[in-house]
């Protein structure tokens, strides 16, 4: 009996250790966001001695945090919806049709290759493109960019989901008189709904968190997204730890809450389909 008991104890110890390593850094930031700067620098403890909400109030009254949040939501939601529409249509064509010269396969592979190249590679030309289109510092500029990034991902994910649906169902629908497109809309699309959800969820997280292109393409609170605004703010207030902590908490809160709510669907997207 004794060795078994020892094993459980080791297990529990490792478990607590992991929880601590993951949560303590985050907790430290959250705690700091409720402290005053004087307390943070002079007598940093695990919990605030004097609770204050000033840091948050300041962010919303002086800084343009509400703007950042709206900009982020608009850019994320619009670009993910557009990419889902264009992406699932394309993915369906790749999964179900045979085109001349195996065109559908070539397109699928090209999109995957584009997906592998990190976006940073086209930072300058995209910036120049938006400059010439006069779309710098606008919602539209961000939306166009993010839609394109999301499309490669949506096609890649949705294609595998469509392939999992048996063709027989659509054939049966067509025998019953559906057109090719109606069969897609009435049969394949509803069956791929869980896939659509998984794809959307992951795209939302990546897009909401995107920083590099927001940094290059936006310059004022008119279009700055949450990560962009947060980074600018902490660039200006180098040692204002209290504001920095509050900005960090606010910057991460929406997406962490969202991710925890939908975590069931998250894993496949995170691993680019390597894990189902």
């Amino acid at each position: 009996m004794t060795p078994n008991w020892k094993l459980s104890l080791t297990r529990a110890a490792i478990f607590v250790l992991i929880l601590g390593v993951v949560l303590l850094p985050i907790y430290w930031m959250v705690a700091a966001s409720f402290k005053s700067n004087a307390e943070i620098t002079q007598d940093a403890t695990l919990y605030p001695h004097v609770w204050t909400f000033d840091n948050y109030i300041r962010l919303f009254s002086e800084k343009e945090f509400a703007n950042y949040l709206v900009n982020s939501l608009v850019a994320t939601v619009v670009s993910v919806v557009l990419a889902l529409i264009a992406g699932s249509l394309g993915a369906y064509a790749i999964a179900r049709f045979h085109l001349k010269y195996r065109l559908e396969r070539k397109i699928g592979l090209s999109l995957l290759t584009l997906r592998i190249v990190p976006p940073v590679v086209i930072l300058i030309p995209v910036y120049l493109l938006m400059l010439s289109l006069k779309l710098l510092d606008t919602w539209l500029g961000l939306i166009i960019t993010y839609t394109a990034f999301n499309i490669t991902f949506c096609v890649w994910m949705m294609e595998s989901f469509f392939r999992e649906i048996p063709v027989d169902l659509e054939e049966a629908a067509m025998v019953d008189g559906d057109s090719r497109f109606t069969a897609f809309r009435r049969i394949a699309l509803p069956l791929a709904a869980p896939g659509l959800a998984a794809t959307a969820i992951f795209a939302v997280i990546v897009t909401f968190n995107e920083f590099l292109f927001a940094l290059a393409l936006t310059a004022t609170p008119r279009a700055m997204t949450m990560p962009r605004g947060t980074a600018t703010l902490i660039g200006r207030i180098d040692t204002d730890w209290a504001s920095m902590s509050a900005a960090g908490v606010l910057g991460a809160l929406p997406i962490v809450v969202f991710a925890l709510l939908v975590q069931r669907h998250l894993v496949r997207g995170l691993t680019m389909g390597a894990v189902k």
């Binding site: 992991i18 930031m29 990560p227 910057g251």
Partner: peptide
Amino acid sequence: ILIIPMVITPVVVAIVFRL
């Protein structure tokens, strides 16, 4: 719990570590 580090905004991860 292990999902949190992956989904939290990378900019905020950097703030966490500055703190």
